[in-house]
Amino acid sequence: MESFHYSQFSQEYSNVHIALFTNVTNATELRNRLVQASTMSGPEGDAERQAVDFAFIDATLICSTLHLKSAILNSVLAQAQGALRTKTVHSEILWNLNPTNNISEAIRRYGVSSSTTSLLVVRIGRPGDPATVQMQMSAVVSGDLSPTSRLAGITDWARVKKYYKILQQIDADPQKDIQRVHEIVVSSVSMKSVIV
């Protein structure tokens, strides 16, 4: 897990924790748990929501940590400006990753599904002990905590290109083509607030 402190934001959401889990075995349970937590009432519900208060993102659709951080930056900025389009700053990350404005589509595509085996878990919150956050993440996800640098081998470029509607090859050199696709994707996420 990696932690970052965005000092331009106020304390309530200045710290960002990003963890990559591979070989995740409890995706289906996790998804059901999230759905249930959202409808539970009373103090139990609050406790349950607290326990799963992360963004869970299908890692195969993320090209790089810069890609993910661009979506995070947009989400925290929207939070700070009181301009969230979804209910929480965590769900806002999923919305920012999806090129369209459809929230349920964003969650379906980028959120955790029964077939997910690689998962990125993000927590945005107050400055605190990173070790505690890491423990909370590991308590929810059964899988191998991996360095985020492993992301490079996980990305499913064909699906990324499909969702971002990058239909034709942009560069003849395959390595450069990937670079260009990456740049289009990162730029598209960053300019999400601009209606194209």
């Binding site: 740049e183 990162v186 730029s187």
Partner: peptide, 8 residues
């Protein structure tokens, strides 16, 4: 490439 846009 674009890295951030803040229209406001």
């Amino acid at each position: 490439g674009i890295r951030m846009v803040d229209l406001q």
